[in-house]
Design a protein around this nucleic acid. Structure first.
Lengths: 158, 158
DNA sequence: ATAACTGCAAAGGCTTTGCATGGAT
DNA sequence: ATCCATGCAAAGCCTTTGCAGTTAT
């Protein structure tokens, strides 16, 4: 009878956590717009409401909220982690020039894993899929387009 | 002695690369077995043949070889980058417990991006797909299985 | 001579952690 | 009183970079 199934549960007794003001504001800001911010972006957002919060607190709460299943930590590509206020599985699109991330407007393709059935020695338990391209703004930027053209042959390979 | 004196100085000479011993050994070790090592793993491998090589040289060559299109830098999940001696597009499978990575035995699914046509404001130019699971060794490890069970609901979401 | 390259070490960017304080039960 | 959470700063980890010396052309 462990709390081993972290879906979006509202069951708030299993672990002892306190919904502190910091934690609540972090969650609210993360869910306000789905911009998938980095920790420091979120820190700046939260700081407008809680000027004395520390970056360490932001990181600690992001880790805790992830463990609670309230949010997702996206460790996909690039150097910085991004955080997603929506805990349900979904794919993302990322602009390879400015880093903007949006949710991909398609449902998870669970059948993708069928392609590996019997073909691998691994026990497959999930997958990640991320689409890459240019966001609307960067699509209009000549420099960004040139960058993408030469970056993607290498970048797009997985 | 290639002196063309006049007019537009568009001297955009492609950089000259020297296949130094360090660079060659790095490439050889990376391609010897397709283990997708991290920089420090590769450093240790290379050090057995070139004991005085520096980690900085390994990083610099990995970056250069990537720019040359000889290898791939995988910025997928987790904290450390991994390097792939095969420059062609292909997917990967990763063990979420020990980090082992293998090539996925399926061809790139280019039609995946069709799902987004007309549904996004982005200019889609590529995608990444990574399968997650347990490698054969970790599949036999009870601790690893417990870890995967509780990690993947959060981890597998994208 | 020139430009590419290396080893070394320092610096950098992002994240985690130790510690003393503060707040809730 | 206890336990969790916070702010602050230091430490940690991985990667990049500055510099002076080295090597190939």
């Amino acid at each position: 009878m462990q709390n081993r199934n972290p879906t979006t549960s509202e069951t708030k007794q299993p672990a002892k956590f306190r919904m502190t003001r910091q934690r609540r504001v972090i969650l609210e800001e993360l869910r306000k717009e789905n911009i998938h911010p980095t920790a420091d972006m979120l820190y700046e957002m939260v700081r407008k409401r809680l000027p004395h919060i520390s970056l360490g607190t932001v990181y600690r709460n992001l880790e805790l909220l992830t463990a609670m299943g309230e949010i997702q930590t996206l460790e996909i590509s690039g150097s910085q982690k991004r955080y997603d206020g929506i805990p349900q599985k979904h794919y993302h699109i990322r602009c390879i020039y400015c880093g903007r991330m949006d949710d991909a407007p398609i449902a998870p393709l669970n059948s993708l894993e069928d392609n590996l059935y019997g073909a691998t020695v691994y026990t497959i338990m999930g997958h990640r899929l991320e689409f890459l391209g240019l966001c609307p703004e960067c699509s209009l930027n000549e420099t960004a387009r040139r960058f993408a053209e030469q970056a993607l042959p290498a970048e797009a390979a997985l």
